[in-house]
Each structure stands twice: as structure tokens, then as C-alpha cells.
């Protein structure tokens, strides 16, 4: 410990300014700023968010009971096992090819108890591959 009372006021002022500057540097994420702000515009997204294509079935929502039943189906089971539980989807996303030579279909089911959350199911041919939840930003 030291007695700062006897130090010149300019020293206290410099100490204060230094602390404020260090604090600002710490609170701003330097790495993120340098990466996202000082690079060129090509860093930012120019690809549209994936949305429904084709027919939309507005009345389709997924209940808690159907979600629980769906989660008992494991990956690699036949597609019809899922469709027995979820016969109709809200809509489909565009088909994609993730694995060479295999076309993937993706179907969407909004949750009845949380409409901002979509269940997305991916099929490859007649096989159920897996699911994910997408959290939609409120409009």
C-alpha cells in the first residue's frame, strides 16, 4: 500500500485516465471488433436465410405428445416410422445435397406450445437422418 495523498494531482489524473482506457479495451471485445469491423464487407452474410418452398400448411403444429413420440424414433430408421407419427409437415425447405450423391429432404414442424421454434427433420431417401430445432427471431 502507498499513500497517494501526497502524490501530485496529475499522477492521480493519469492513473484514472489509464484505468478508464484499460476498462474500455477490456469491455470491447478486441478480437471481434478487429475481425468484423475492420475487414471488408465480404465478411457479412449475403446468402438469404433458408425458407419454405412449395405448399404451406398453416394449420400444422406439433403437440407435446407428438414431439415426445417422435423423439423415440432413432436416426437411420425408415422414413415411414416418422410419418406414422407426423403425417403432414408445415412446409419443406429446399432439397440439398450434403453427402455426395444423396439428396436430402427437410421438413418443418412449428411447435404448438412455442410457435417461434421449428422442428426441422432431415430425410435421405427413405431413411430418417436426424432433427434439429431452429429458433425463429420474433417478427
Amino acid at each position: 500500500m502507498s499513500d497517494l495523498e501526497g502524490d501530485p494531482p496529475i499522477l492521480k489524473l493519469l492513473l484514472l485516465v489509464g484505468l478508464v482506457l484499460v476498462g474500455f479495451a477490456l469491455m470491447v471485445d478486441v478480437r471481434r471488433v478487429s475481425w468484423n469491423s475492420f475487414a471488408d464487407n465480404s465478411l457479412k452474410s449475403s446468402r438469404p436465410v433458408e425458407t419454405c418452398q412449395g405448399e404451406i400448411h398453416e394449420d400444422v403444429v406439433l403437440s407435446r405428445e407428438n414431439l415426445a413420440a417422435f423423439l423415440t424414433v432413432s436416426e437411420r430408421e425408415p422414413k415411414f416410422r416418422v410419418q406414422e407419427i407426423l403425417p403432414q409437415s408445415y412446409c419443406q425447405l429446399p432439397t440439398i445435397e450434403v453427402r455426395a450423391g444423396v439428396v436430402s429432404e427437410r421438413e418443418i414442424y412449428p411447435l404448438a406450445f412455442d410457435p417461434q421454434t421449428w422442428l426441422i427433420i432431415l430425410y435421405e431417401g427413405e431413411e430418417y437422418a436426424g432433427y434439429q430445432f431452429r429458433f425463429q427471431a420474433p417478427e
Partner: peptide, 8 residues
């Protein structure tokens, strides 16, 4: 990982 590409 992406919610748009389940299982991958």
C-alpha cells in the same frame, strides 16, 4: 453445425 442441416 446448423439447425438447417440436421444430422450433420
Amino acid at each position: 453445425s446448423s439447425p438447417d442441416v440436421p444430422a450433420y
